[in-house]
């Protein structure tokens, strides 16, 4: 066991896989010498050489499209998009080309690619650095969507993502990179893509969430516990595939749920999760499933983002609302 923050855990996962499989390559803007703007790939070029870990021209569509091309020839690219807002430049290659490759070639080709990107608010970053764009990805057939909330999961999920023969959109919350350290096993282990994690057991209300909001939700649960409310918190870990079994099992127990997401409210992950709850567990519900989310505005400038982001108070209020329905 080693103590690592999430950033170090992700780096360790990539190191393990670079060592294990010579087809794994990492590329992106500034990932080489300095190891990316957040240093996630720090030291990897030094250890594995420029052939395996390399800088690209500043062109997101090109680097994502390169990943598709290299994937056709047996490589397993890890392509870093420097900030989440820049994926718009690469959407065709990520969500059309990579995601359709298996289908349109009848299985002859596939895209064993991990598209990594930092995302998420609360760090006073520049415009278009911190949006939560997972909603775009979950509507896209053919790509998996993974969002870890802690160092252990991040390493295990990243190793799974690299070994996956389909494209994975791996979203790393900026606020979690250096937030805390935790025990992370040495060497290789995997966390299954498509398996949620019950991070806190409870009996009255279920909170379904992912990424940074897992921590906000756990804080709310801890405060609610003091008032006698028992809250179960489920870290979904992956949005595609979604672990509906774990969600349903929890709702069968609590009969009440809310979904907490940092992204804007409309048509996102929360909306989809609630739709699936309706399909699979509506008879177990004692109250409507509510959403705690950002408002349907653009992601705000830094000085208002703390007020914009879902807070412990807003999560607690939503829990009270479904309890008192």
């Amino acid at each position: 066991m080693a103590q690592m923050n999430m950033l170090e855990a992700i780096r360790d996962a990539m190191r393990v896989e670079l060592k294990r499989d010579s087809n794994v390559v990492i590329f992106g803007e500034d990932v080489g010498k300095v190891g990316g703007v957040f240093r996630v790939t720090e030291g990897l070029q030094g250890e594995f050489g420029e052939d395996r870990v390399f800088d690209t021209p500043l062109a997101e569509s090109a680097l994502a499209g390169m990943a598709v091309g290299m994937g056709l020839q047996g490589f397993r690219p890890i392509a870093e998009i420097q900030f989440v807002g820049f994926i718009y430049e690469a959407l065709d290659q990520m969500f059309v080309q990579a995601a359709r490759m298996r289908y349109r070639s009848g299985g002859r080709y596939n895209s064993p690619i991990v598209f990594r990107t930092p995302f998420g608010g609360g760090v006073k970053a520049a415009e278009l650095h911190t949006d939560s764009l997972e909603g775009l990805a979950i509507q896209t057939p053919g790509i998996k969507v993974v969002i870890p909330s802690n160092p252990y999961d991040a390493k295990g999920l990243m190793i799974s993502a690299i070994r996956d023969n389909d494209p994975v959109f791996f979203m790393e919350h900026l606020n979690l990179y250096r937030a805390f350290k935790a025990d992370v096993p040495e060497g290789e282990y995997t966390v299954e893509i498509g398996k949620a994690n019950v991070v806190r057991e409870g009996t009255d209300v279920t909170i379904l969430t992912y990424g940074m909001m897992v921590h906000t939700s756990v804080k709310a649960a801890e405060e609610l516990e003091k008032t006698g409310v028992s809250v179960e918190v489920i870290d979904l870990r992956t949005l595609v595939p979604l672990d509906i079994e774990t969600i349903v099992a929890s709702i069968q127990k609590t009969n009440r749920a809310i979904v907490v997401q940092e992204a804007q409210k409309t048509s996102g992950a929360a909306a989809e999760i609630i739709a699936q709850i309706n399909e699979h567990a509506i008879l177990h519900l004692e109250a409507p499933v509510l959403r705690v989310a950002g408002p349907d505005t653009v992601y705000p400038f830094a000085l208002v983002e703390d007020a914009w982001l879902p807070s412990v108070a807003r999560v607690s209020a939503a829990v009270q609302k479904v309890l008192n329905f």
Partner: peptide
């Protein structure tokens, strides 16, 4: 479903997207 010994992609519909695939194949 292209035969294994035929080294092609099917025609690309998004104009220009294939240019990057070729670049990636060449990198490989």
């Amino acid at each position: 479903r292209i035969p294994d010994d035929v080294h092609v992609l099917m025609p690309q519909i998004i104009i220009g997207a294939q240019i990057l695939h070729a670049t990636g194949v060449a990198m490989a």
